[in-house]
Design a protein around this nucleic acid. Sequence first.
DNA 1: TAGAGTTTGAGAATGTGCTCACAAGCATCT
DNA 2: AGATGCTTGTGAGCACATTCTCAAACTCTA
Lengths: 230, 230
Amino acid sequence: MRERAIPEATVARLPLYLRSLVDMTERGTHTVSSESLAFAAGVNSAKVRKDLSYLGSYGTRGVGYDVEYLIYQISRELGLTQDWNCMIVGVGNLGHALANYKGFSARGFRVVALVDADERKIGEAVGDLAIEDFEDLERIAKERQVSIGIIATPAPAAQEAADRLAAAGVKSILNFAPAVIQVPDDVSLRKVDLSIELQILSFYEQRKSALEGLRRGKRLTGSAAKSTRP
Amino acid sequence: MRERAIPEATVARLPLYLRSLVDMTERGTHTVSSESLAFAAGVNSAKVRKDLSYLGSYGTRGVGYDVEYLIYQISRELGLTQDWNCMIVGVGNLGHALANYKGFSARGFRVVALVDADERKIGEAVGDLAIEDFEDLERIAKERQVSIGIIATPAPAAQEAADRLAAAGVKSILNFAPAVIQVPDDVSLRKVDLSIELQILSFYEQRKSALEGLRRGKRLTGSAAKSTRP
DNA sequence: TAGAGTTTGAGAATGTGCTCACAAGCATCT
DNA sequence: AGATGCTTGTGAGCACATTCTCAAACTCTA
């Protein structure tokens, strides 16, 4: 019946709400208004209400939302009621950091394999896992039912890593390598590029100084890089 | 004269074009069409042309863009013709990885200081820098003219880190801590949250399996997580 | 039970970004 | 020089996202 079409922008904010809500239960809060949830998540309240309304009518007018119930509904929508097995491809500095990152396990993302192409690293222990051979990627991915691949290789190796993950049936890939990679249509791909974020900051910083120069000029029209205030 | 208002979405893509263009010069390409630049950057050609047109008319009809000249113009627009001094706050696994990350220095981002609140870490060498005391943050930031602060602390420490960076006159902050932080209006803030990206992937993965169930149902309307294809 | 005070949910208006489509302009060939 | 082919730059239309606004629905108090 109900057409389920949650906007992409909303999906990207749900994890933010979820984190705020979890913080709240830990502090003993049982009910929350869109206003205070908005403050905690760093957005405005109209956006919170619109976003939550896509999930259904889970609030109570004049009262707010039940924190526990909202956590359950958002978790369900995001698919966090089950655990996801992850494989990290490329165990350099970044791969190491990701393997030890506590934030993953907290949301049900289990790192179950680390692979690297460098023979000298194979066998090395990281946490309670050992680094395995990149050549065995497909076998390992199938054996351990990996559903999310995390690419933390140097840029030139990223495409091959993606190809082999896809060949092994992995349908979701998070790419940290500074390279554009191609994946089959049925594979979801997201990327995080650390240096791109710095370049964006650089743009706004540079524009600020440029405007400083023409301080007496006309009024600034565009808005700067989003600050946290609504 | 000319009103300079480059859309936020365009700014976010300029670094992507820049990287592709740099790759191209290294392979000896001197001219590029919007079509091939689009392919390299993983977007479509109309978007490339619109984005580049905000910078000015730097292309030649019937020919394309001069790679070197475009690199210069984009770098200038992004403020990459100068170097930026960065300070990393919090040197755990992630801070370590960031300190050693090659992609930063390649674009003129110099990490000039590492600070941590854990006394046992102070003095420890990371690359050719030593970890210094979080308490000295303001002094160090001023002495070394830090303009970008990178927060890689645990979530509870993030707000204090931001406050002290702002107090030291740092006007751009990149936050890796999984927490929403407040900064003054004149400070630009961007955030990268590793576990949020995984949660977004989880959403689309979960929806895929849900749809598998009603395979014989009506046609899928929304689009899945963006694949790399245009 | 009635009235005052809150807060949600959603329709409407606005704003931003994306894609299409094509005229304008350049190079090359005859 | 004129014709042909290619590629840019941009106006127009469309799609998506955000914000505004307010009726509806709830709690609490008397």
